[in-house]
């Protein structure tokens, strides 16, 4: 890991964009903030703001609709993705943590891995907390964790750049970078602590996780949350670690194309079996199941961490107002 002074983030971005397609979150002027292509000659200043894009980077690797195979003239034909190399510029710590989580889940998924290998990840420490984020409580931010990105931008009085991997080193070769002063870690740690403090007391959230895993949440709590879930699929769509999918067969000339499409465990039909039996028949059961998948200790054992990275997107996207932060506080009795 090497740290450098970065005189111009825009110059770095232009350098990276010259080699491969580069995406950066940008406002669309109509209320949206989306990952958008930035050309090498794009002169717009790099102004990441505090809020992460509402849509995580998940879809770059695990698209919401993706062809898996075709069936033609009685034969199955695999559809392999052929991704062009690309760079994600300005990934937050939470999203990078989520990518690492997804890397484990999709470790043997050729489609995911092909896209993942095509990507250069440029992370960014958060200079201050976004509204509603609680990454500090879950150990996924606000500073980018070790080894999660090829390059990391560190905000401060002036930008600094961490080069973490061989791919990162190759990507910045040709740039004239001066080493950062030796005490760069202290300034970074200061920013991290400050941003983490802005997220408030983690205790009520941790109490919620503890109550959930200790089985101390009474069924009435889940049944009260149930009607507030409209089954919209918003939380699972924006969640950077959700990974469930369903098949969709579309007719083609004389055959069909099988896609996998994002599914949502909040749908009643998700667990419904052919017999009509449903493992999670009530809305409360489904809400309970969802949060167990995000905060259950069993999943932590399997994936090395909780499924939630504290990005706060579900709180923002949930029409019923029962995103992670709200639910954890309620479970913890706060």
């Amino acid at each position: 890991m090497n740290a450098y002074e970065l005189n111009s983030v825009e110059a770095l971005r232009a350098h990276l964009a010259a080699d491969r397609r580069l995406y950066e979150p940008r406002p669309d002027g109509q209320g949206g903030l989306h990952w958008q292509t930035v050309a090498a000659d794009d002169a717009q200043a790099f102004e990441p703001g505090l809020e992460p894009p509402p849509f995580s980077a998940k879809a770059f690797f695990f698209p919401e609709r993706e062809a898996m195979f075709r069936f033609e003239r009685g034969r199955f034909v695999a559809v392999e993705p052929e991704p062009e190399a690309f760079t994600l510029f300005g990934l937050r710590a939470c999203d990078l943590t989520a990518i690492a989580y997804q890397d484990r889940f999709f470790a043997r998924d050729g489609h995911y891995q092909a896209r993942r290998e095509a990507a250069l990840l440029v992370g960014m420490d958060c200079a201050a907390s976004c509204t509603g984020g609680f990454c500090a409580a879950l150990g996924s931010g606000p500073a980018v964790g070790d080894g999660l990105a090829d390059l990391v931008l560190i905000p401060g009085a002036s930008w600094r750049l961490l080069v973490n991997t061989a791919a990162g080193r190759a990507a910045v070769s040709g740039l004239d970078l001066k080493p950062a002063p030796r005490d760069w870690t202290r300034a970074r740690e200061q920013t991290r602590q400050q941003a983490a403090a802005e997220q408030g007391d983690a205790a009520p959230l941790l109490a919620g996780i503890a109550a959930l895993n200790a089985g101390r949440v009474p069924p009435q709590t889940w049944e009260a949350l149930g009607p507030r879930c409209l089954g919209c699929s918003g939380c699972t769509s924006v969640c950077p670690t959700c990974s469930c999918f369903a098949p969709l067969d579309l007719p083609t000339d004389g055959g069909l194309r099988r896609e996998r499409v994002w599914d949502s465990c909040l749908y009643e039909g998700f667990q419904k079996e052919a017999s009509g039996h449903n493992g999670s028949p009530s809305p409360g059961d489904r809400v309970r199941r969802y949060w167990f998948h995000k905060f259950g200790d069993g999943f932590k054992r399997e994936f090395g961490r909780y499924g939630c990275v504290g990005c706060g997107r579900c709180d923002r996207v949930c029409p019923g107002g029962i995103g992670a932060r709200v639910v954890l506080k309620r479970l913890g009795g706060a």
């Binding site: 209320g31 949206g32 609709r65 919209c232 769509s237 499409v261 749908y267 923002r316």
Partner: peptide, 26 residues
């Protein structure tokens, strides 16, 4: 069109959608 993203600054929906809106691509 393979999917939709919410528009967090939209005055009506404020970055949220219902099941129908989320399924627009189909």
């Amino acid at each position: 069109i393979i999917g939709v993203e919410p528009q967090s600054g939209h005055p009506v929906s404020q970055g949220q959608l219902c099941a129908k809106g989320w399924s627009t691509s189909f």
